[in-house]
Lab assay of single mutants.
Amino acid sequence: KLLSSIEQACDICRLKKLKCSKEKPKCAKCLKNNWECRYSPKTKRSPLTRAHLTEVESRLERLE
């Protein structure tokens, strides 16, 4: 599967780190437990900047 097509777990399953069936409108866990089942939009991760990478590398060197 391509990364862009990976389905996201519902908010509660993601928060509780449960295996989500990803069914809509309610996944199996939410249906069974009568929880409100919501699927928040995916958040875009910002790409690493060179400055951040350099900072992490220098912190790693100090720890070694």
Rank of each mutant, 00 (worst) to 15 (best):
S21Q: 03
A9T: 03
K29G: 03
T54H: 05
H52L: 03
D11R: 05
K17I: 06
L63Q: 04
K29Q: 06
R62A: 14
L3A: 14
I6S: 12
S46P: 09
C30G: 07
N34I: 09
K44V: 15
S40K: 01
R38N: 15
N33H: 11
A51G: 04
L2K: 10
A28L: 12
Y39T: 06
Q8A: 11
S4G: 08
S46W: 01
S21G: 05
L18M: 15
K44E: 04
C13F: 02
K19G: 15
K32S: 09
S5G: 11
C20G: 06
L63I: 15
E64W: 06
K16P: 01
R50L: 05
L48Y: 10
E36V: 14
L3V: 12
S58I: 15
K24A: 15
H52M: 03
R62T: 11
R50W: 05
K29E: 02
H52A: 01
Q8K: 08
S40R: 05
K44Y: 08
A9I: 08
P41A: 08
K16G: 00
H52Q: 08
R14M: 00
K26L: 15
L60Y: 09
E23G: 10
R50P: 00
E55T: 12
C20R: 03
R38M: 15
E7T: 10
P41V: 07
E64T: 14
K26V: 10
S4M: 14
R38W: 11
K1E: 00
R59P: 03
L63D: 03
C37S: 05
R50D: 06
C10W: 02
C37P: 00
P47A: 06
W35A: 15
D11L: 05
I6E: 09
N34S: 12
L18W: 10
E23L: 08
R45I: 00
R59Y: 02
L60T: 02
E36S: 14
H52I: 04
E7P: 10
C20A: 00
K24P: 07
Y39A: 05
H52T: 02
C27N: 00
S21P: 04
R14K: 09
L18N: 10
L3M: 12
S21R: 03
K19Q: 05
A28R: 15
K24C: 12
R45N: 01
L53E: 09
P47G: 06
N34K: 13
E36W: 04
K32M: 10
K16N: 08
S58C: 15
K24V: 15
R14L: 05
P25T: 08
E61Q: 13
Y39P: 00
R38C: 15
C27Y: 04
K24L: 14
L2Q: 15
D11T: 01
R59T: 04
L53F: 03
I6V: 11
E23I: 08
R38Q: 14
L53R: 10
K29I: 08
S46N: 01
P47T: 02
S21K: 03
N34E: 15
K32T: 11
E55L: 11
L48W: 08
E64N: 02
K32P: 03
I6R: 05
C37T: 03
L53A: 00
E7L: 12
K44G: 03
E61V: 15
N34Y: 11
I6N: 10
I6K: 09
A28Q: 14
K19N: 07
L48D: 00
K19R: 14
K44A: 13
S4C: 12
C37H: 03
S5C: 12
R14P: 06
E61M: 14
K17P: 01
H52Y: 13
K17V: 04
C27R: 08
K29R: 11
P25W: 00
K32F: 09
R59E: 02
E57L: 02
R62M: 12
K19E: 04
L18C: 11
E36I: 08
K26D: 08
L2I: 12
A51T: 05
A28Y: 10
L53V: 13
L31E: 13
A28D: 09
K29P: 05
L53K: 04
E61W: 13
S40C: 01
E36H: 11
A28W: 15
E36C: 13
Y39E: 06
T54V: 05
W35V: 14
T43L: 13
R62Y: 04
Y39Q: 07
N33T: 07
L3G: 13
T49Y: 08
S58G: 14
L63K: 02
A9W: 03
L31Q: 12
K16I: 00
P25E: 04
E61L: 15
K1R: 11
E61G: 13
T43S: 10
K19C: 07
R38Y: 14
S4I: 13
E36D: 14
K19D: 01
K22P: 06
S5Y: 10
K29C: 08
L60S: 08
R14V: 04
C30F: 06
L31G: 14
V56E: 01
T54D: 09
L15H: 11
K22M: 04
N33E: 09
T49W: 05
L18G: 15
L48V: 01
E7A: 09
N34H: 11
T49R: 01
E36R: 11
E55I: 09
C13A: 02
D11K: 01
C27M: 00
S40A: 07
P25C: 00
D11P: 02
D11S: 05
C20V: 01
P47D: 10
Y39G: 03
L63T: 01
L63H: 03
I12F: 15
